[in-house]
């Protein structure tokens, strides 16, 4: 790996201080190539807190695609079931989001939030802003559905659902 530990990624990372390991430290853990350090990386919250904002990639002198590496590490962490507690709400949100897309072809925001609440048991969250959102016409009560929903089912079946069975 090309990283020479200049630290520019960490210096500019908006969430570095919230991470177990800031990006450059994480790169160093990976560079050692040991299983022990790989486990540290997979079980860290760093890979889940990465927002893929790509500031690190834009500034990296060695053009290392850290965001893409994070994508890989997240998939790997799910595969090996080594999940930091911080990942739970994030994964729950993504799953709820994708459920909505799978069923309707589009994002159904109320459905997303309800599904997310069931996944996280966090029923009180966002109760404060939901009514104003509704009043301002920002929420549809019913989902918008695309016509060719079968294609959605097929896309999901052949990608993410396929990957899950393979993993099992």
């Amino acid at each position: 790996m090309r990283c020479y530990q200049c630290g520019k990624c960490t210096a500019g990372c908006v969430l570095a201080s919230d991470m177990n390991y800031p990006p450059s430290y994480l790169m160093r853990l990976l560079q050692t190539g040991t299983r022990q350090n790989m486990d540290k990386v997979l079980a860290s919250n760093s890979i889940w807190l990465c927002l893929n904002c790509e500031n690190c990639l834009g500034r990296c002198p060695m053009e290392i695609d850290i965001p893409k590496m994070m994508d890989y590490l997240r998939t790997q962490a799910i595969k090996e079931n080594k999940l930091h507690p911080d990942s739970k709400p994030i994964i729950a949100f993504h799953r709820s989001f994708l459920d909505s897309v799978r069923n309707t072809g589009r994002l159904y925001e109320i459905g997303l939030v309800l599904s997310y609440k069931f996944r996280t048991f966090n029923f009180l969250q966002d109760l404060a802003i939901a009514p104003s959102m509704y009043l301002k016409g920002k929420l549809h009560l019913l989902p918008e559905k695309i016509k060719d929903r079968r294609s959605m089912k097929r896309i999901f079946a052949q990608t993410i659902e396929n990957a899950k069975t393979v993993n099992k």
Binding site: N52, D71, H94, F97, L98, S100, V101, G105, I160, A163
Partner: peptide, 14 residues
């Protein structure tokens, strides 16, 4: 349809 946004990007490349 929906572009998949960050959720698809994070969860599955294909």
């Amino acid at each position: 349809n929906c572009c998949g946004a960050t959720a698809a990007h994070v969860m599955n490349e294909e």
